[in-house]
Design a binder for these strands. Structure first.
Lengths: 200, 200, 200, 200
DNA sequence: TCTTAATCGAGACGGTACGTCTGGTCTTAGA
DNA sequence: TCTAAGACCAGACGTACCGTCTCGATTAAGA
């Protein structure tokens, strides 16, 4: 019997154990995040709660930020939907409502912690951008493209930069500027977007 | 002088705060930031280089982030100018050029470190907003108001939110999105701003 | 009159030492000793409680041990009496009773702290010996001399060394050996002393 | 194998205590003691010299006194011999000679530091008594018992108290009284001991 | 009465070491 | 072979006191 065949039968107790440990670690990370927040979370606390060795965690994740990122993104509730409501205004307002309410909870704290970690750890920054930041922006660009198709935005609009403006406003208020992420803010953003006209 | 006036002088006994130590600490902080960056900077290193006791630093600043913030903002070179070039387009492009070039240097690294710290330390977040974020946004709003006065922006434009969009795009790319802060980006932002028409 | 001559007159203008501050410091020292013990007592705590500056304490005493020593010896209750009861046995038992009971209280803790300090600070060691250890031993020698005069001890007994043995036993149990300083111990010491016979 | 035997194995997972680190720490402590003395010795200096983390030291010893005690007693040269010379006088003089000369060197300084620490730290006091003070006194009692067997001391002599007197005299002069620990002192003590007669 | 200088309370200062904490690695016995 | 436990090295943390140094205010003698 080949090595591969053996692995497929999943006879080796260690391997089964490792999947279990994997899930236990993510679950423990979620619980620790819930209880003490991102800042106070430590690898040691996760290991202790998961009944895992620290080495086991370091084997699969390079940093506590990476664990937190996977713990966050593996939760289905965090998934943001970019739905098609039939109009650009509706799409944007629906997106903002879901997104803003998500940031107000515990996962908002975790997300700002991850954004912080990305500043301090270049390796994690790349991972965070690859799995979180870039895909979400791409979905926003897709949403805006529907606006062009419907004739709500000028065809020559630079959607990449427009998405930077929209996402930027959201993150700016979320991370830096002391003003709330509320419906009024969402409406004012949408109002400005809709005032864009085509270049003369 | 009356009795009341004398009392108002608020006599504080004991040795006064040493301006020399204060300046030595900020200078040392700048040097350490220059040499090892924000992340690797420690209070111990600052104290040693400044010839100051750690207690003296903790007496006047609550955290290393607070020291770094004052070290950064007390440098005249970091001051960003919002000059009046005669047109909104010129004002914005001039601002972006100065701002983007500032973020590319060492002070950019420090600034992203401070932004990170603000996520992890609520007390510092408030200080960072009060002394850095909010005043700068106010200056941008003033710049945009000149645009309204010149007739380049519609009078009913929500400048607070427009400033959130502009600053947001800058910070979004600076902190999160893997794309450069270059002249092309500046021009595309300006192009979009100038396409805003009045509501009607 | 020359400058030197003036100096020789020991002319001292300026404010004189404040007896009030002096007494307040000793009183504060006694209170701090009572509350937290010798080990945890600090010059800062004494200064704060006395409403005195630290400098004022350092001006008059070289160390916290010196303050504690004066605070201890300036209390009249601590004075040990070497009374004349008419017999060597009586004198010794009377002395032991007073001495042992004194060591069991708070002042015992202070005294062991001072003994400790004397090991660590040679300058204080000399002061402690001069004002505390040596005078007390001399009084014990005087007590023993009465024993020779009464014929209870042989005239050729080396009283210096006998006093070392007696005081030594007391301090050994007080500082080092885990056995109580009680009446039984006193009686056994006296019993041994009285069994000394003259040489030859 | 019995149940009890199995229990005694007391399974403890994880990395075991490193004997190498243990020995390196004690050796470093000895070197630091030799160079700067007990008073100036710090845990940090030991850790640095031993190439050990401070945590490793704190894991196994509660205080610098505990490290110094083990560093001192694990040196074979410090062992004091209570030899049998055939007479009480000879045994005592031999003991005093060895003991006094030991106290005059570096280890004397360490020992007085430990005696000081025992006054300031009750937990260390118990350890110091258990491993150092009490065993040594027991050996002295054994030495004195040989004196009774040889008929040099009365059979009804209270040896515990006599040992307190002898050890006390030594420690009294060593720690407190400003007079030398020399041969003359040893001879005078022995002369007094030998003058004890039986009660009758 | 004014001058002079040492005193006072207060507390900031440069330092040192503390004991704790976290990170990331290494070692061990058992599964 | 891999896991859980946890000891290991390393070094920054923030705290506690140390003993010294400024301050302005106070005090008391001599001029």
């Amino acid at each position: 019997m080949t090595q591969e065949a053996k692995k497929l039968e999943s006879f080796t107790p260690g391997r089964r154990r490792s999947d279990q440990a994997h899930r236990a670690i993510l679950q423990a990370a979620r619980e620790v995040l819930e209880q003490v927040g991102y800042q106070a979370m430590t690898i040691e606390a996760i290991a202790e709660r998961a009944g895992a060795g620290k080495k086991t965690i370091y084997r699969w994740w390079p940093s506590k930020a990476a664990v937190a990122l996977e713990a966050l993104t593996s939760q289905t509730e965090v998934q943001v939907l970019f739905s098609d409501t039939g109009s650009l205004e509706g799409d944007l307002l629906a997106y903002f409502e879901l997104s803003f309410s998500g940031l107000r909870g515990k996962s908002g704290t975790v997300l700002s912690g991850l954004a912080a970690e990305a500043q301090l750890d270049p390796e994690f920054a790349r991972e965070f951008q690859r799995t979180f930041i870039v895909p979400r922006k791409q979905e926003l660009v897709t949403l805006l493209q529907r606006g062009i198709q419907r004739g709500e935005l000028a065809p020559d609009t630079n959607l990449e930069v427009l998405a930077d403006l929209i996402y930027g406003a959201k993150w700016y208020r979320f991370l830096l500027y002391p003003a709330p992420l509320d419906d009024a803010f969402a409406r004012e953003i949408v109002k400005l977007i809709l005032r864009l006209r085509s270049e003369a």
